[in-house]
């Protein structure tokens, strides 16, 4: 190093080299992060198209055999169906509650109370989901609430903050003066909601609903205690297979189906943002 430093022309070159190395290191970390985060998902999608009997990487040849087995395995298709039904109901209920909550918060003149309630509505987001599941299991048993209905309610609670965040952001961006103007011109609240607020905030409402749907369809830890044999959601069924029957490739196909649904929904949210942003 000292010998290089004695050459005047080498000094800036050395600084340049160090800058390049630092830049390369940052590029490497960003690339590595993407690979670590996306890699496992891509591996599963790739092997689900395998033609082999057992897990092999890379697959010897591609085929759709595991998908056809997935769609002809009743326990898996019924789990997929149940997941979709619960997600549909839970996302709708969560969106409705989140809309009411957001509208209430926007009307509150007290910022302190508003901040407190916002924390309440976001609380299920950071609350350990497995403890929520356990609490609900005990509560349902003691209160005599049917577990099917209870599972939907659990998903509503878990999905609520996601819908709430999307809707309140949209409502905050939209001019509250508009609905006040409608009210001062004599429009009853429901009328101003239907004709003024909803047409303006639909992008937030729809992306809130999709977020809630996505959260519900992937929900694991809360559902763990609330499902049972013959009554499981797809993620719980996948978990059961992985834990007790080994990683069969039909489970990779089940996962890929799930990922496919998410891709479609994710693309929908992004296009809503894009359309609404124009």
């Amino acid at each position: 190093m000292s010998t290089i430093n004695t050459l005047p022309s080498a000094v800036p070159a050395q600084g340049q080299l160090r800058r390049n190395l630092v830049a390369a290191a940052f590029n490497l970390v960003l690339g590595l992060s993407c690979a670590l985060v996306l890699g496992p998902i891509l591996v599963i999608v790739f092997v689900s198209f395998s033609s082999s009997e057992n897990f092999a990487f890379p697959p010897p040849a591609l085929s759709l055999r595991w998908f056809s087995q997935f769609f002809t395995t009743p326990s898996l298709t019924s789990a997929l169906l149940l997941s979709m039904e619960i997600a549909l109901l839970a996302a709708s209920a969560a969106t409705l509650l989140a809309l009411l909550a957001s509208m209430a918060l926007m009307r509150l003149p007290s910022p302190k109370l508003s901040a407190f309630l916002q924390t309440l509505f976001l609380a299920p987001l950071v609350f350990p989901t497995i403890i929520l599941g356990l609490s609900l299991l005990l509560f349902y048993r003691v209160a005599g609430i049917d577990l099917t209905f209870g599972l939907i309610l659990a998903h509503v609670t878990v999905a609520l903050p996601y819908a709430f965040r999307a809707i309140i952001a949209e409502l905050a961006a939209f001019d509250a003066g508009l609905s006040e103007a409608a009210a001062s011109l004599g429009a009853p609240p429901l009328r101003s909601l239907w004709h003024v607020t909803l047409p303006l905030i639909w992008p937030g409402l729809l992306s809130g609903w999709i977020f809630a749907f996505v959260v519900s369809i992937g929900e694991l830890n809360t559902s763990l205690f609330l499902t049972g044999p013959g009554f499981t959601t797809l993620p719980i069924e996948v978990f059961g297979y992985l834990q007790f029957e080994g990683a069969q490739l039909v489970i990779a196909a089940a996962s890929t189906v799930q990922i496919g649904i998410i891709v479609v929904l994710f693309a929908t949210i992004q296009s809503i943002r894009w359309i609404a942003g124009k």
Binding site: V37, L38, G39, P40, I41, L42, V43, I44, V47, F55, F57, V214, I217, G218, E219, L220, P235, V238, F239, L242, A247, I251, A252, S255, Q258, I259, I262, V263, L265, F266
Partner: peptide, 17 residues
């Protein structure tokens, strides 16, 4: 995007790796 994929699938990916 990965945040929307169920954690069981992402854990399965690591099992496969």
């Amino acid at each position: 995007f990965p945040l929307m994929v169920s954690n069981v699938v992402r854990a399965y990916g690591w099992m496969a790796i």
